[in-house]
Design a binder for these strands. Structure first.
Lengths: 230, 230
DNA sequence: CACTTTTATCGTCTCTTCGACGATAAGGGG
DNA sequence: CCCCTTATCGTCGAAGAGACGATAAAAGTG
């Protein structure tokens, strides 16, 4: 409001990058190479540049830390965290972004953090303090947001490759929610929601059993009615 | 990430304070008394102090601008906005908060902004640019969040006084969503959801017609199944 | 006071959707 | 060929939602 001088703040972006990897819901973390929290795990992130928009900073950090572009997947703002003392060095307000990416060969370690890797969220959240700063809370918020959005959006497909089967999509839901879903009811629901899945010409038999129809993401983003957690 | 010097940022909070006032969904705005945007309407807000947490800054601004404490009502973080150039004076990252308050006698004009008042959101959103800075977008985001949360939470009661009738609650939904709801189905839904409403001893006849049972907020926060917009 | 208007509250009917689960289809491995 | 695995289709019963009729209880009006 006032035109007076403002206090000094640093602004960073932190990234909650989630994927499903061999049946486990996992988040991307880096090992810190300096104090504070030297050697501890942390979310990837970094300072916003003077003339950079917040989503651009998030995309840049994602690219730097993982070599990923979220063209595959999804990136959205999660929340901001600015408690005094959350960074012992200075006052930092961090804008967290939530990204969902398909299972990748390897999180191609970029320049910033050669030590980046995916770790199951259960392990990271088991005890608060396994992550540096307040990253445990940020991760928990991101995980809950992702779990909630699977219910009423088609975002689960962001965890899948370009083409996928209903069974693979179900495995995403089961890993993210940590539950088992009835294959028959799940199949009815996702194939019966117009615009959720678009069948392709191919079928596949990866995974054994009867060959399954391959699908691609459809144009629908909102699931109405939703697919509720049991 | 790096310990190098950070660029200069200012951090502010902006408030989207919503209420339902004589049947209209309205937001609190102030008239700016200085450049830029002198004389234009804007959301209340201000700079975060050096040792102040973000929610504390939001509560302080709310109190300063309206004399309100959100003990009645609800306050949650909405999103952050930090595009370069959104404030022509300097680089500002603003953390927006969403507040829901019951209808008040008058938005007791505080010290900062004697000109604060509630204006129907339709009027404010009709043309982008009716609000200063990017406050039109922030308001739109807050309005959409409020509309969505009425579906699957009991937050509509935050717009009501301590005791209220089912009809008054329905009027909240109708004003926020801009639709008409069937009084019978609505009554069945809200009284049939355990923990949503707790009956009190009294009844009232304000508004004419048959006297109505008075209710208080119940402990339930999540509406399951939700009350969907028509 | 009889009558109309207004709002509240209770019920009924139908349709959709969901969860549980049976049945069949179509691959691979022995 | 038999078995195991996964995919896909169907059926049944219960729950919830929208449409809407019916009754209740006040205030206003002649």
């Amino acid at each position: 409001m006032a035109g007076s001088e403002h206090p000094p703040f640093a602004v960073t972006v932190d990234l909650v990058i989630l994927t499903v990897r061999s049946g486990r819901f996992a988040a991307l973390v880096v090992e810190r190479g300096e104090d504070p929290f030297h050697g501890r795990l942390a979310l990837p992130g970094g300072f916003v540049r003077p003339d950079e928009d917040l989503p651009d900073a998030a995309l840049r950090e994602l690219r730097e830390e993982t070599g990923l572009s979220p063209s595959l997947g999804h990136l959205e703002q999660l929340a901001s965290y600015g408690a005094p003392g959350r960074d012992p060095r200075q006052r930092v307000v961090s804008v967290a972004y939530l990204g969902l990416v398909p299972d990748l060969p390897e999180p191609v370690a970029g320049s910033d953090a050669a030590s980046s890797r995916f770790v199951p969220v259960d392990d990271l959240l088991r005890d608060a303090g396994s992550l540096a700063f307040d990253h445990g809370r940020i991760l928990a918020d991101g995980v809950e947001r992702a779990r909630a959005k699977l219910e009423y959006t088609s975002l689960a497909t962001a965890f899948c490759p370009d083409e996928f089967t209903v069974g693979e999509l179900r495995a995403v839901y089961e890993a993210v929610w940590g539950v088992e879903l009835d294959p028959r009811n799940f199949h009815r629901k996702v194939t019966g929601t117009p615009g959720f899945l678009e069948p392709t010409v191919g079928t596949t038999t990866r995974g054994g059993g009867r060959p399954a129809q391959l699908y691609r993401r459809g144009p629908t983003t909102a699931l109405m009615p939703p697919l509720l957690r049991p």
